[in-house]
Design a protein around this nucleic acid. Structure first.
Length: 304
DNA sequence: CAATCGTGGGA
DNA sequence: TTCCCAAGATT
């Protein structure tokens, strides 16, 4: 675990002798997906929008919505002037619609506090609604080209295997940032690409469950493989149920309101869910979240 | 810290 | 069919 044995370097000087970071950057150059927000010159606002949309939502579903959003609201100030209802409808079925509201609130904050310019400072980014540890660094790094350790679930899984020899990612820790920073290339521009590269490796090769080690550029130095690919031994990961939960009911209710062009009576929401108690509780929570609004005459609609 | 918050595709 | 899970954040 301390230093690379000299004999290993001699056996394969062109591969094992290279730093992990450089190997991954070179691998990324040939294996990366062609995603629109990665196009050279993509501005930080567009990157920020992509990062929020990608929180817990697969790339495939994000792509078309991201294109629509950037065409419609090319700058933060544009989104800041949109109504919550417009934003919630444009969010479509990406899921977790509170993200849409927070993204709009972030746009307002960027417009008011930062003159419409997405900040490059991590602390300032983290102060924005809906922007946490991961997203702040992703925007600084991918949007502004700033050298930053970026840790998401993919990176935690890659580090867990490659560095710590464990089968799956551990829960997020502060040390994750130093773990990955230790592997980054010295050159700043390459370090930025390294951050995307690790995520890409986790997304395409070092996937959860059964990784495609045959396609991995660093499988020869992976601590997990070298340890004989031991099975996951951590605590059982909690299974998030969906059917029958408030999340499903909220989704159904919002679905009705997204489709309605006018405020609807409470009766119009009945078909969305049988259980009146749960339906009522969920409607209330949507009101509290600001995802639904009640008109003076008692009808319901998306917040104007 | 653990629970909560949508949705849909694939193993 | 059932279960897993996908660039997290918030409370």
């Amino acid at each position: 675990m301390s230093t690379t044995p000299p004999d290993v370097a001699r056996q394969d000087p062109t591969a094992a002798g290279d730093a992990v970071g450089d190997v991954l950057v070179d691998w990324y150059a040939g294996a990366a997906r062609d995603l629109p927000w990665r196009a050279p010159g993509t501005d930080p606002w567009a990157v920020l929008v992509s990062e929020v949309m990608l929180q817990q939502t697969p790339v495939r579903r994000v792509e078309p919505v991201w294109r629509e959003w950037l065409a419609r609201w090319p700058a933060a100030a544009d989104l800041a002037s949109a109504s919550p209802a417009e934003v919630i409808r444009a969010w479509g079925k990406l899921g977790y619609p509170r993200r849409a509201l927070r993204l709009r609130e972030a746009a307002v904050a960027i417009t008011e506090r930062h003159g419409g310019v997405v900040p490059a400072d991590v602390a300032e980014l983290e102060a924005l609604p809906g922007i946490g540890t991961y997203t702040a660094r992703a925007v600084a790094c991918f949007g502004h080209g700033s050298r930053q350790p970026v840790v998401d679930t993919n990176v935690r899984r890659v580090v867990a295997r490659l560095v710590h020899g464990r089968a799956e990612a551990a829960p997020a820790r502060a040390s994750d940032l130093t773990d990955i920073a230790a592997l980054a290339p010295d050159d700043d521009a390459r370090a930025v690409r390294f951050s995307v590269a690790v995520m890409e490796l986790g997304a395409l090769v070092c996937v959860s469950g059964t990784p495609r080690c045959g396609a991995c550029p660093v499988s020869d130095r992976c601590a997990w493989r070298l340890a004989g690919a031991p099975a996951y031994d951590g605590p059982a990961r909690r299974v998030q149920k969906f059917a029958g939960t408030d999340r499903q009911v909220r989704g159904r209710l919002l679905d009705v309101l997204r489709a309605a062009s006018e405020p609807v009576e409470a009766d119009a929401l009945t078909p969305a869910w049988d259980d009146a108690v749960q339906r009522s509780r969920c409607l209330d929570s949507l009101l509290v979240d600001g995802l639904v609004e009640q008109t003076p005459d008692g009808r319901f609609c998306l917040p104007g």
